[in-house]
Design a protein around this nucleic acid. Sequence first.
DNA 1: TTAACCGTACTAACCTATATAGTACGGTTA
DNA 2: TAACCGTACTATATAGGTTAGTACGGTTAA
Lengths: 129, 129
Amino acid sequence: MFELDLRSRAPVYEQLVEKIKELIIYNVLKPDQQLPAVRVLAGELTINPNTIQKAYRELEHRGYIYSVPGKGSFVKPAVPGNNTARLRALEDELAKIVSEMLYLGVTPQEIITRIKMQLPEDEGGKRDD
Amino acid sequence: MFELDLRSRAPVYEQLVEKIKELIIYNVLKPDQQLPAVRVLAGELTINPNTIQKAYRELEHRGYIYSVPGKGSFVKPAVPGNNTARLRALEDELAKIVSEMLYLGVTPQEIITRIKMQLPEDEGGKRDD
DNA sequence: TTAACCGTACTAACCTATATAGTACGGTTA
DNA sequence: TAACCGTACTATATAGGTTAGTACGGTTAA
């Protein structure tokens, strides 16, 4: 499914949260798609099942997945208009990144260009949806 | 100078790194401006000088400040065109944030609008340089 | 030159967070 | 029933963060 960097100083469960979150927002994992079982993923990554569960618990707490005892864990469909708190946090991060790019000498035009390349329905960049 | 969240799970020295980095990229701390002495800042924040030093060491390692024994620590002027590695990391982060905004239902037009508000030499947003 | 700063380095101790191992329970499904 | 699923719990070992204290060399102004 993905790889981990065990030499990293970042906790394994946090790396898991980030990786899975990316797979969700990049639409690699589709809404309501089932995630690997805790024990299965633990076996594949050769880490402890408790660590997987901690990551899943965190992902559920952040609203990216939902778990059903006896059935499995699944990707939670996003509800547009919800998560205003998360959106505010994202805008803060965005502002910080843009500021640092300006600080590093990137021109405003270049910044706009780079971002438009990430967006759908535009020439110059396509998303694999 | 700023405040810390001692209840946060994030390490104090990492919070320090982030806060000071923000002050630098937002141009609140000007190039070659002297930072508070290790012991002074430790006194103001009522934390251990070792923790401040750890943050300063990390900031120096990341290229945001430079320290001179006997004199002090200072804001390192940015060199445009340098730090291509950091720029690549920023673009990755940017792509992730844009993807999550799309995932949360923000339209591409709105994303562009929000970013343009962060940029100088445009109506609708100003930077305090 | 002395005194007061500056960054830096080091040890020791404490505490929390992380990760592992093992066991167990209830719900689901073929 | 058997084999899965998520979940919970204890215990243990280790790593990282923080504090405390001490110390050293460079800088600067009195």
